[in-house]
C-alpha cells in the first residue's frame, strides 16, 4: 500500500529546474499529499506567482508519482501562501552549493546573508530583482564578487 510518505519520498528526487541542486520538498513547494487506493492528489505551492518553471515542476511531479498510482492529479494552490520560511536546512545547503545565498532566516535566528563563495557576512543587496522572481542580486564587500540571493518572502 502506497502512503503519503512514499509519495513525498519520490518527490524528494524532483529538483527545481532552475536550481538543480535543490529538491522541491526541501524548498517547501509540496504542501499536501492525499493517497487513496487508485488515486494520488498533490497540492503544490508556487514560490512566486510569476515563476516560469511552474509548468515544468508540475510535469516532473506528475512523472515522479505516476508509477505509484493509476491516477495522479497535481495542482498549484494559493493557500497557504508559500514563504521563504518553508525552506529547510537542506535547501539552504543546496542553495549555497549552487552559489545562491539562502533567504533571511526567521526572526530570532541568525540574520546575516553570507557570501556563498567566501562566507563573509559583509554583503549588501544590489537589487531586490534578479534573474528569476525568487532571486535578488547581492555583492560581497570582502571577496568582491557579485552573487545571487534567494529572495526573502514573508
Amino acid at each position: 500500500m502506497v502512503t503519503a510518505a512514499h509519495v513525498r519520498e519520490a518527490l524528494a528526487a524532483v529538483k527545481d529546474p532552475e536550481i538543480p541542486t535543490c529538491s522541491i520538498t526541501d524548498l517547501g513547494i509540496v504542501h499536501d499529499v492525499r493517497v487513496t487506493a487508485e488515486r494520488i492528489e498533490i497540492d503544490l505551492l508556487p514560490t512566486f506567482a510569476g515563476c516560469p518553471a511552474l509548468d515544468v515542476i508540475k510535469r516532473d511531479v506528475e512523472q515522479a508519482a505516476c508509477d505509484l498510482a493509476p491516477e495522479v492529479e497535481v495542482r498549484f494552490v494559493n493557500a497557504p501562501p508559500w514563504t521563504s520560511d518553508r525552506l529547510n536546512d537542506d535547501a539552504n545547503d543546496s542553495l549555497k552549493a549552487f552559489g545562491i545565498s539562502p533567504p533571511l532566516l526567521q526572526i530570532g535566528r541568525a540574520h546575516n546573508v553570507t557570501c556563498p563563495y567566501c562566507g563573509s557576512d559583509q554583503t549588501v543587496e544590489e537589487s531586490a530583482f534578479g534573474p528569476t522572481p525568487c532571486r535578488t542580486v547581492r555583492y560581497c564587500n570582502s571577496c568582491r564578487n557579485p552573487f545571487e540571493g534567494f529572495k526573502t518572502k514573508r
Binding site: F48, A49, G50, E126, F129, G130, P131, P133, V137
Partner: peptide, 16 residues
Amino acid sequence: EEDLALSSIAQDEIAH
C-alpha cells in the same frame, strides 16, 4: 539592474 527590476515587476503583474 533596473532593466531586471522593471522586467521582474512586469512578470509579477502579469502573473497576478
